[in-house]
Amino acid sequence: MLASGPVIVMQVPEQLNSEEVRNFLQEMGPLLEANRPRIVFDCSQVRSIDGAGVEMLLDCLEEALKRDGDLKLAALSPEAEVMLELTRVARVFETFSSSDEAVRSFNAIPADALAQDAPWYTPAFGNLGALKQAS
């Protein structure tokens, strides 16, 4: 398990079947019970996912959302991507090409946190009024 600040990055096992899901959930359980869990599943090693694996991903997402957190998927292997598309689950998750990118996405400033009256552009020459007064 890799920890990167408050965002937890978990390596998803190669075979995401019912047996592996059980072990994986044992690790995941305490993390999901935290307040506002922010989790990234690194799926680069995944070679196969069955129904239990898909269900586990959805359960984890549900638990994270319930606690005002989120679960994001990163570095999906082609096999994982095909399986998630096949089972119509891909569209439910935010996905990123790398774990770093997924971690950064948690720390990005949300759009609604920006002041609504601030200009949408950055003035290239600073305050034009002050410039005119000085001249």
């Binding site: 079947n17 196969s48 069955d50 129904g51 239990a52 082609p78 095909v82 399986m83 096949l86 089972t87």
Partner: peptide, 10 residues
């Protein structure tokens, strides 16, 4: 890619 899907429900 080519792989086997182990879940018979799929």
């Amino acid at each position: 890619i080519k792989f086997n899907v182990s879940d018979p429900a799929i």
